[in-house]
Each structure stands twice: as structure tokens, then as C-alpha cells.
């Protein structure tokens, strides 16, 4: 069903021209093993080549939404509502083969070197890797080395993940994400486990390197959203829906100014509202599925 438009998208050298935007209208998502939906009445637009930041308290369904977009929940959930994906005027049925996924953990495979971790996606089949296999492995190694140099880890290519610090590991994960070269990048709190300065630097780096992608970033940190977002959604309620907040028009990554402070105030009061009527029962579905692995 979705394969024919993907073939049209296949030429990878024209990556700059692939611009995917996602529109969700009246979205509804329910896990098969639960009676209550996680999301309903969800309206969202994720414009091409922009950063969409999603805020919300733990367990509100942010991660479920992201995992649904990543195609990881197809077997487990019921979805209804309009879900439109436009890629260069082509309409796609789903985001398969269009996304790169970056999680809170770096998810570097400990048995592979840094370089092999970056080129991991070339091991896996599908339409993209066929076109990738035409490029010799030498070329993909060169590309990986260039990307590692971009994230400042050129000297660590032959190291193993356990020899690196947390910040370096997450930078390798960023290089791996860039290596996949997909038009959509889904990020689930990728910087939350890092210390303040490392996080700041990595935000700048990601902002620079992912400028031409459609980025969906889940975060708990209002300041992170304010620095990086072209638009901000706050998810709240049970089941959750999304509320759009207007964002300063200045270029990202933003310096923190009065306007940002005001927006932060607005975000905080929006989020606090949710905690005030907490007497409602807890949402058990998401269960921090993005956090509890290790």
C-alpha cells in the first residue's frame, strides 16, 4: 500500500527536497489491553523542516504518540482519526522508512564500535538499504566518519561505547540518526539524562544538524522546548489532547530573553493546571515506556 510512494522517494541524493509534514486531525489512540483511550480529540500539525516540541507530564501519552508515529505500536493499539503525511506533495499511508528514532538512552550496541554503531542502519533491509547498498561500504564509512567529525568524535571511531561518557554516547546516537538521513526525526527526551552544559551543547549541535528535518521532540524541560521549538504543543487531560502555544519568531537555538521567560511562565501554568486536578485516576498505559528499559 505504502510502497509505491516510497519508491518515488528513494533517490537519497535529493534529501534536501524531501519535506514531510504530518497532520493529525481528531486523533484517537487506545491500547488493545485497556478500556480507556490514551489520546483522543488530538489535533496536531508537524510542519516540514521544523521542530515540534511536545510537553506534558509523565504518563500523559506523549511517548505513546511518538511510538505510534514510529510504527512501533501497530500491533498493540487502535487508532482512529485523520493522519495525513505529505511528502513532496505525495501522500503516504505511514511513516515507515521515513523516520529516524532517538531515545532517552543512547541505545548504542555495546558489541559494536562507535563507527559500526553509526552505520548500524546499513545492516537492516528494506527499500532504503537497497539503494544504500549501491553505495560501497567504503563510502558509507567515509560518511560516518564525516558525521562523527561533525559531532566532534572523529578520534573515537574505533572505540567502544562503554569507553565513552554519557554526552559522547548521545552524540554518537545523534550521528547515527543523521546517518540514516530520514526526513523525519522522532526524539524522546534525548538530552534529559545529560548534565546542563553537555545538554546545552548537544541542543545546539542537534539544532544545527537537523535543521532540514521534520523533528518531533518530546521533552520534560520547558527551557529546552523554548530554545529549540518552532512550535510547542502541550498534551494534557485523560485521555490527552494537545494545545498549541505560540512561540517567539526568532531563530533557534534561542537565547533566553524576556519573551522566552513569558512563554516559560505560560508553559508552567499550563502544566500546573494538570497537576491541580490530579484527583482523577492515574493513566496506567504509558507507564513511562520510554524510560523503564534499563
Amino acid at each position: 500500500m505504502s510502497s509505491s510512494p516510497q519508491v518515488i522517494l528513494a533517490p537519497t541524493n535529493s534529501k534536501d527536497t524531501i519535506a514531510v509534514n504530518i497532520t493529525i486531525t481528531n486523533g484517537y489512540l487506545r491500547y488493545h489491553d485497556s478500556i480507556d483511550p490514551v489520546l483522543s480529540q488530538l489535533n496536531m500539525t508537524m510542519p516540514a523542516k521544523q521542530w515540534t516540541c511536545i510537553l506534558g507530564r509523565s504518563g500523559c501519552g506523549k511517548t505513546s504518540l511518538l511510538r505510534y508515529l514510529a510504527g512501533l505500536l501497530d500491533q498493540q493499539v487502535t487508532w482512529s482519526g485523520e493522519y495525513a503525511i505529505n511528502a513532496n506533495q505525495q501522500v503516504l499511508a505511514d511513516l515507515n522508512n521515513q523516520i529516524a528514532y532517538m531515545a532517552q538512552q543512547d541505545l548504542l550496541l555495546p558489541w559494536l564500535s562507535v563507527l559500526d554503531n553509526v552505520t548500524l542502519s546499513s545492516k537492516f533491509g528494506g527499500k532504503m538499504s537497497k539503494s544504500a547498498s549501491k553505495v560501497t561500504s567504503q563510502a558509507s564509512t567515509n560518511k560516518a566518519l564525516t558525521l562523527l567529525a561533525k559531532v566532534g568524535l572523529a578520534d573515537n571511531a574505533q572505540h567502544f561505547p562503554q569507553q565513552l561518557s554519557g554526552g559522547m554516547r548521545q552524540r554518537v546516537a545523534l550521528a547515527r540518526t543523521l546517518m540514516q538521513d530520514k526526513p523525519v526525526v522522532l526524539m524522546d527526551e534525548p538530552f534529559s539524562a545529560l548534565d546542563a552544559v553537555t545538554r546545552y551543547r548537544l541542543q545546539d549541535l542537534a539544532c544545527e544538524l537537523l535543521a532540514d528535518k521534520t523533528v518531533v521532540l518530546i521533552t520534560h524541560d520547558p527551557q529546552e522546548a523554548i530554545r529549540l521549538a518552532d512550535q510547542i504543543y502541550i498534551m494534557q487531560g485523560t485521555p490527552a489532547s494537545a494545545e498549541n502555544l505560540s512561540v517567539p519568531t526568532s531563530a533557534t537555538p534561542r537565547q533566553f530573553d524576556a519573551e522566552c521567560a513569558q512563554l516559560q511562565q505560560q508553559i508552567m501554568s499550563c502544566l500546573a493546571k494538570e497537576y491541580r486536578d490530579e484527583s482523577e485516576d492515574e493513566d496506567e498505559d504509558e507507564g513511562e515506556s520510554g524510560v523503564g528499559y534499563e
Binding site: 515507515n96 528514532y101 531515545a103 538512552q105 532504503m128 522522532l186
Partner: peptide, 14 residues
């Protein structure tokens, strides 16, 4: 670890 599997699945692994 579920994370490894998720990552590989989003990369289109069979």
C-alpha cells in the same frame, strides 16, 4: 532491551 529492538525496527529490520 526493548530499546534496542525499537531502534532496529525503526531502521526497518526484519
Amino acid at each position: 532491551p526493548t530499546g534496542y529492538l525499537d531502534l532496529a525496527k525503526t531502521m526497518g529490520a526484519t
